[in-house]
């Protein structure tokens, strides 16, 4: 099981973000995606999720292009972006139930309640989500991590809006996922307690295309 990126080049608008980007992520590994604002972190993440098609290069899952096995790739993928996908009009439990069911993985209401309990929302299951604070909504979204059995997690700024306790909780969830054979791609500055050989760093600034100077010669 591996995620391989080879020779990727992406353009957004008329600006080339990065080119000749390659890396490989294996089971039990965590990749930190770094780079300045506008370096293309979000675009790379969307490319990894097969939402965005790169100009050049390929993304391979288990040595096969993701476009050729899109449905099975999506079963192996869990993605969480900036948005929580929480509906204010639904209760906490209903939100979690629907969002988890969309992934096609089964689970009982007991599992759902258990996950809410672990994420620190015990007793909130029937509360309309619009009454939750920003951090609590984020916790509802993160509760899906406890239920999800997909091997590849792609998390875009997962620690934003969380308090200290929740940050620790999430660090624990991610490292448990890695230890149990999963893999994850993260954009964050937050450390995750793991041994060094399991952690990779990728700085997008090193792959930025230097074409700005050409146009001003």
């Amino acid at each position: 099981m591996s995620l391989t990126v080879s020779n990727l080049q992406c353009t957004r608008g008329d600006r080339q973000l990065f080119s000749e980007l390659s890396f490989q992520l294996k089971a039990k590994q965590l990749l930190f995606l770094e780079g300045e604002n506008g370096s293309g972190k979000t675009t790379l993440i969307r490319t990894l999720c097969a939402l965005f098609v790169a100009d050049k290069g390929e993304v391979l899952w288990c040595n096969q292009p993701i476009q050729e096995q899109i449905e099975s790739y999506r079963e192996s993928l869990f993605y969480l972006g900036h948005l929580n996908a929480i509906k204010g009009d639904l209760s906490v439990l209903e939100n979690l139930r629907f969002n988890h069911a969309m992934s096609g993985q089964k689970c009982s209401d007991d599992d759902l309640l258990d996950a809410l309990d672990k994420i620190g929302l015990y007793g909130y299951e029937d509360v309309p989500s619009r009454q939750l604070s920003q951090g609590q909504k984020r916790r509802v979204a993160l509760a899906r991590l406890l239920l999800n059995k997909s091997p590849l997690w792609i998390l875009d700024e997962p620690f934003v809006a969380l308090d200290v306790a929740a940050v620790e909780l999430l660090q624990g969830i991610i490292s448990a996922h890695i230890e149990s054979g999963g893999m994850a791609v993260l954009t964050t500055h937050q450390e995750v307690p793991l041994t060094q050989e399991k952690i990779q760093h990728l700085n997008l600034d090193q792959y930025a295309t230097q074409n700005a100077e050409a146009s001003y010669v």
């Binding site: 008329d14 600006r15 074409n211 700005a212 050409a214 146009s215 001003y216 010669v217």
Partner: peptide, 9 residues
């Protein structure tokens, strides 16, 4: 659209 490319420059 190609304003930033080398050949237009």
């Amino acid at each position: 659209r190609e304003i930033n490319t080398k050949w237009v420059a």
